[in-house]
Design a protein around this nucleic acid. Structure first.
Lengths: 112, 112
DNA sequence: TCAATAGTTAGCTCTTGCGCTAACTATTGA
DNA sequence: TCAATAGTTAGCGCAAGAGCTAACTATTGA
């Protein structure tokens, strides 16, 4: 459970950067080499590589080096963690008594 | 669309911190004052307040001050942005030809 | 009216994140 | 064999993030 939380944290941190989200989007179309990916972003290769490493170390992608080319593959299962978290939030707020609506309708009631 | 991306970015940044995710979870049960929320986290009130401000400025919660008490309310609609993003990712990878499976099955084929 | 409560502001430290350049290794193909 | 290609490593600078303390304001309730 703590483990789960650490993983979730890594996934959210990885996705908090627009470049990395774009990479995820790009890899949704299929595997791609680091160089081909990098060409689409306005930064140097070493900078881009850091994003690749972040995505990989947080499990969102896997990479395989063959010859001098490193190919990146999306790891879709990892994105499911976000889905799960959202589902849990929904479960929480659907399970509660309807205090939110009460509050919005009549704020006084909740600050006695 | 750029606007959308900026908002999405804020949401992911806000959710990248475990304290802030926990606050979102906590507020799923209903509105709560800053003080009551803060009591559940191992940090000082000023530190905690920064998280509250981050959540608020990124639209994940709203806060209302009444007297000396500031009450926090979850803004569920904002979380839907994450849902939408995930849905788009799914749309992308379902729309593509099945290169991922090919790659996983036979990596050589994709690095000619 | 005055002490306690609830939050706020200012300002500091320390770490991490994101970008860069320069220089390097390893592979490839002519 | 040797130049071009693809990535890697090292190290720097700067900005932002997350925490803290100290001192402050505003409200409340006895």
């Amino acid at each position: 459970m703590a483990q789960y939380s650490v993983q979730l944290d890594g996934v959210f941190v990885a996705l908090a950067d627009p470049t990395r989200r774009a990479v995820v989007g790009r890899l949704g179309h299929g595997p791609m080499s680091v160089g081909d990916l990098a060409r689409e972003f306005p930064m140097t290769l070493p900078s881009f590589m850091k994003h690749v490493r972040t995505l990989e170390s947080n499990g969102l992608i896997r990479t395989i080096k063959s010859g001098r080319v490193r190919t990146c593959v999306l790891n879709r299962e990892r994105l499911a963690l976000v889905d799960d978290w959202l589902a849990e939030q929904r479960r929480i707020w659907e399970g509660r008594t309807d205090r939110l609506e009460q509050f919005v309708t009549d704020p006084e009631e909740n600050t006695p």
